[in-house]
């Protein structure tokens, strides 16, 4: 089935089996292996990408559902020559060991910070009518859809805080 998706700013025309997930499209059809396949069932967050600026699990979405959408993967966020400031913060804070979850963590964190900016609540939000403050508890809760099997969580929290503080 013919599908056109804008990936990292470039329109990509594809002819895909309807069963192809957005994740497999990125990795297997568009040569963008930065987005990782962990569980393939929406439980680990390694496949997180931004679709029209919103973070989703690319493993639980079909490419044909995204005809006309704009997708940002880790390859569209930074390059080895020009790292995104959040990637630099992950390096500075030592926020990974094996690195397999890192692209998903970074895409998820960027989406999450936009959600905070829009004042979306989480289960850590005590006052639903107040402006949200990104406390450590809020940050951990909002990132709970991204699993790190190496358990670099304290450093991931530190890296995101460091970036968010600098970006604010």
């Amino acid at each position: 089935m013919r599908t056109t998706i804008t990936v990292n700013g470039e329109a990509r025309a594809l002819d895909l089996d309807t069963r192809t997930t957005l994740l497999d499209t990125l990795r297997e059809h568009l040569g963008l292996p930065g987005t990782k396949k962990g569980c393939d069932h929406g439980q680990c967050g390694a496949c997180t990408v931004l679709v029209n600026g919103v973070r989703i699990n690319s493993c639980l979405s079909l490419a044909v559902m995204h005809d006309g959408d704009s997708v940002t993967t880790i390859e569209g966020i930074g390059t080895p020559e020009k790292l995104h400031p959040l990637q630099t913060a992950f390096l500075t804070e030592d926020a990974f060991q094996c690195g397999y979850c890192t692209p998903g963590q970074i895409c998820s964190a960027l989406g999450m910070l936009e959600e905070v900016k829009q004042n979306w609540p989480s289960q850590e939000t005590a006052d639903l009518t107040a402006r949200i403050t990104l406390t450590d508890d809020e940050l951990r809760e909002r990132m709970s859809g991204n699993i790190c099997r190496c358990s670099a969580y304290p450093q991931i929290v530190a890296a995101i805080k460091s970036y968010a503080g600098g970006a604010a």
Binding site: I56, S108, Q123, G145
Partner: peptide, 19 residues
């Protein structure tokens, strides 16, 4: 309807709730 907000944010992850 704060009970509805509390119930929704108790389910799934941010990525899942976005979809």
């Amino acid at each position: 309807y704060p009970v509805l907000v509390q119930a929704i944010v108790a389910g799934g992850s941010g990525q899942l709730r976005n979809k």
